[in-house]
Computed example of a mutant assay.
Amino acid sequence: MNLKHIIEAILDYRFWITDHADEEAEEDQLSFDEIYHSVLYGEIIENYPHHQPYPRCLIYGKTSQLSRFIASGIMIKKQTQLF
């Protein structure tokens, strides 16, 4: 996955948040604003390009005073393609 594509998708509201991601965020007491901030200012530290059904990556980012690892299986919509 390419961090630039993920950031562009977030800024353009071209992504989906799965029920699983919503449950994990709630369990970890993370707001989606914190997740977005972590992604926008973070870095990909692991890439899983062959993960099914979509590629995934692990993003390291900070929220407020905390460091976070965000597992990203972000589904990005660009016309009819998913990245």
Rank of each mutant, 00 (worst) to 15 (best):
I6F: 01
P53S: 06
T63S: 15
I76A: 06
Y48S: 07
H5Q: 14
I45Y: 02
W16F: 12
A71H: 15
I35N: 02
R56K: 12
T18N: 07
D19H: 13
L40E: 12
P53I: 02
F69C: 11
C57Q: 01
L3Q: 10
D12E: 11
M75L: 11
I59M: 00
Y13A: 01
S38H: 06
I7D: 04
Y41D: 11
A71S: 14
M75A: 05
H51W: 08
I44W: 01
P55G: 00
R56L: 02
Y54I: 07
A71W: 13
H5L: 10
I44L: 00
Q79E: 03
L11S: 08
L82Q: 09
Q65N: 13
G61I: 02
L30G: 00
D22P: 00
G61K: 02
R56C: 12
E34M: 08
D28K: 13
M75Q: 10
R14L: 06
R68L: 14
S38R: 01
F32Q: 07
S67L: 14
D33C: 10
F69M: 10
D12R: 15
H20D: 13
H37Y: 15
D33W: 12
S67Y: 12
L40I: 07
I6G: 01
H50D: 14
E27S: 14
I45S: 06
I70P: 05
P49Y: 04
A25I: 03
K77C: 09
W16L: 08
H51Y: 11
H20V: 13
Y41H: 15
N2R: 11
I17T: 03
K62V: 05
I17K: 00
E27D: 14
G42Y: 11
S67W: 12
E26M: 14
D19Y: 12
D33T: 03
Q52I: 13
Y48K: 06
I59D: 05
N47E: 08
F32D: 09
I44T: 06
S64G: 13
H37C: 06
P49G: 08
S72V: 07
D33S: 15
A25P: 05
I76L: 01
H37I: 04
K62N: 10
T63K: 10
Y48E: 11
P49N: 07
Y41E: 14
C57K: 00
Q81M: 03
N47F: 05
L30V: 00
A71Q: 13
R14C: 03
Q29K: 14
E43L: 04
S64W: 12
I76N: 05
Y48F: 09
I44R: 05
E27L: 15
L58K: 07
P49D: 05
Y41L: 13
Y54S: 03
V39L: 09
I59V: 06
P53T: 08
D12Q: 14
N47H: 02
L11E: 10
E43H: 01
F15W: 02
F32P: 00
E23C: 12
H50V: 09
G42P: 07
Y60K: 13
Y41P: 01
Y41V: 07
A9V: 08
T18Y: 02
E26L: 14
H5N: 14
N47P: 01
H51A: 10
D22N: 14
G42S: 09
M1V: 08
C57D: 00
I59T: 03
